[in-house]
C-alpha cells in the first residue's frame, strides 16, 4: 500500500512561550500520501529529537476526530482544507508534490499560545462551568423512558451535542467568537425536556461567561459552521439568540 512519497515544504509556527515572539521555521519533508498530517509532524519531531533539538509542541490525543484536542490552522483553515474532519483525520494525499504548507496555532485573544502550536482553550471550560449542565444529583432521576422525547427532537439535540469542543469555530471566525460552541451546548439542553427548568438562566450565565473571556462578537459570517469538524449548525446560534432575548425580557 506504500505509495510514492511527496515532497513538501512546511512552514511551522515556533514560539517558545506565551510572551516570546514567534516565527515560522521551515522543514523540508518527504512523506507518504497514506500518512496523516500529524504523523508527518511526529516524523519531523523524531528527526529533531534525534538531533537533540526540541520537537514541535502540538497537541493531539484520540487521533480519530472525537476528543477535540488537536487543532492546527493549515494554510489559513482550522483543521485544514478538507471539510468535516479534525486535523488528526487529514491525510497527506490531499496535498501535492512541491506544496508549501503554513501551519499556525489557533489564534485568539481568548486562546493564548502556550508553546509553538499548543494553545490554552480553558476559557471554553469556564463557560461550561458557568451553566452548561442540568442540575440533577446522582440517583435523583426518573426512569429513562418516563419522558418520551420525539425522535426528531432527540436527534436535533444530538446534532448540537456532537460538538467536540476543539475551538475551530473560534479559530475560523474572523472575530474569534465562541458563539457556535456556546450555542451548541445551550441548544442541546434547550431542546430536551430535561433542560427546560434551567433553560433561561443557563443561557444567561453562559453568555455572561463567554463575554468575560475576550472572545469577539458574532457577525454572522458562518465561517464557524463551514470549519466545524462535526458540522454543528448555525441554527444553534439563532436558537441561543432567541433564548437570550427571552431570558432578558422574561
Amino acid at each position: 500500500m506504500e505509495h510514492k512519497k511527496i515532497n513538501l515544504t512546511l512552514k511551522v509556527w515556533r514560539q517558545q512561550d506565551a510572551n516570546a515572539k514567534g516565527k515560522f521555521a521551515d522543514y523540508k519533508v518527504s512523506v507518504s500520501p497514506d500518512s496523516s498530517f500529524l504523523e508527518m509532524l511526529d516524523d519531523i519531531n523524531n528527526d529533531l529529537e534525534k538531533k537533540g533539538m526540541e520537537p514541535i509542541t502540538f497537541e493531539s490525543d484520540c487521533r480519530e476526530g472525537i476528543c477535540g484536542t488537536c487543532g492546527l490552522v493549515i494554510n489559513g483553515q482550522p483543521h485544514g482544507p478538507i471539510p468535516r474532519i479534525a486535523t488528526c483525520q487529514l491525510h497527506m494525499r490531499n496535498f501535492k508534490e512541491g506544496d508549501t504548507i503554513y501551519v499556525e496555532p489557533f489564534r485568539a485573544k481568548a486562546f493564548p499560545i502556550i508553546k509553538d502550536l499548543m494553545v490554552d482553550r480553558s476559557a471554553m471550560d469556564r463557560i461550561m462551568e458557568a451553566g452548561g449542565f442540568i442540575s440533577v444529583n446522582t440517583l435523583s432521576v426518573p426512569d429513562g423512558n418516563s419522558i418520551p422525547i420525539p425522535k426528531e427532537v432527540a436527534s436535533e439535540a444530538m446534532d448540537a451535542a456532537s460538538c467536540i469542543g476543539c475551538g475551530a469555530c473560534v479559530a475560523a471566525c474572523k472575530n474569534a467568537s465562541a458563539m457556535l460552541f456556546v450555542s451548541a451546548k445551550v441548544s442541546q439542553f434547550a431542546l430536551l425536556p430535561q433542560g427546560q427548568p434551567e433553560r433561561y438562566i443557563r443561557v444567561d450565565e453562559m453568555v455572561k461567561a463567554m463575554d468575560q473571556y475576550g472572545f469577539g462578537n458574532c457577525s454572522n459570517t458562518y465561517a464557524c459552521e463551514a470549519e466545524c469538524p462535526k458540522g454543528v449548525s448555525i441554527k444553534n446560534i439563532a436558537r441561543m439568540n432567541r433564548d437570550y432575548f427571552m431570558a432578558k425580557i422574561k
Binding site: N75, G76, Q77, P81, Y102, A223, E227
Partner: peptide, 10 residues
C-alpha cells in the same frame, strides 16, 4: 493569521 483562509469559508 499569516495565511488568510477566510475566502474559503465565508
Amino acid at each position: 493569521y499569516s495565511v488568510n483562509g477566510s475566502r474559503k469559508n465565508t
